[in-house]
């Protein structure tokens, strides 16, 4: 892996070592002696990608004690050269927002409230819903008597927020259930 860190302090004078290290996930601390007070000192640096528009700006995520303490642009990404727009620049506060959903929540029919549930209960209950609905509504043949093997009463929407790997497993799962009402942000 060759990482040049173009864009870091281009003009700050030759011979000065850069903070960014050549390898992913290496502790920054031993590389250089730092004065106290710079918050990403000693942080682990991980390459991620901004989850907003399709420019796909690579980011550097700085992690300390298991927490994200900073996100900034990756200067090696040829398209952005380390820049980020307002949305990308806000990634640290978005990841660490107190508004994040952190537990599975259930809303019962007619209720105005969310109730916390454990994952197993959620997944088991969802699986049962899916199976019962599929068994009830599955269409083996269409009006012309042709085999169609589809489930029209269950839909799926999303998502361009998923990775390619997630999209692949999602597509396969949905087709295996026979779902045909399947769409996502490509039309939004």
């Amino acid at each position: 892996m060759s990482v040049s860190r173009r864009g870091f302090i281009k003009l700050l004078g030759a011979g000065t070592a850069c903070l960014g290290l050549s390898k992913l996930g290496v502790d920054l601390a031993p590389a250089q002696a730092y004065a106290a007070g710079m918050k990403i000192e000693g942080a682990r640096e991980v390459i991620s990608i901004c989850p907003f528009c399709s420019c796909g700006c690579n980011t550097l995520v700085h992690v300390k004690d298991g927490r994200i303490i900073n996100v900034e642009g990756d200067p090696d990404y040829p398209i952005s050269a380390g820049g980020l727009c307002a949305k990308g620049a806000a990634l640290k506060s978005l990841h660490t927002s107190s508004e994040r959903l952190t537990r599975p929540l259930y809303r019962a029919p007619g209720s105005a409230k969310w109730v916390e549930k454990d994952w197993n209960w959620m997944l088991d209950t969802i699986a049962r819903k899916v199976k019962d609905q599929r068994d009830k509504d599955f269409t083996l043949k269409n009006a012309d008597g042709v085999e169609v093997n589809r489930l029209e009463s269950v839909f799926s929407l999303g998502s361009s927020q998923m990775s390619n790997e997630e999209c692949a497993v999602a597509h396969q799962s949905l087709r295996s259930l026979g779902i045909v009402h399947m769409d996502h942000q490509a039309r939004v």
């Binding site: 870091f8 302090i9 281009k10 003009l11 700050l12 004078g13 000065t16 070592a17 850069c18 903070l19 730092y34 004065a35 007070g37 710079m38 918050k39 000192e41 700006c57 900034e72 642009g73 952005s80 050269a81 380390g82 820049g83 980020l84 727009c85 620049a89």
Partner: peptide
């Protein structure tokens, strides 16, 4: 100043992808 002392660009300069901000001597 904390970033600059560690040879990092000021955050505004770092964020700017348009080349509108240049930092140096």
């Amino acid at each position: 100043i904390d970033r600059v002392k560690k040879n990092l660009l000021p955050m505004c300069v770092k964020s700017c992808a348009m080349g509108a901000m240049t930092f140096g001597e």
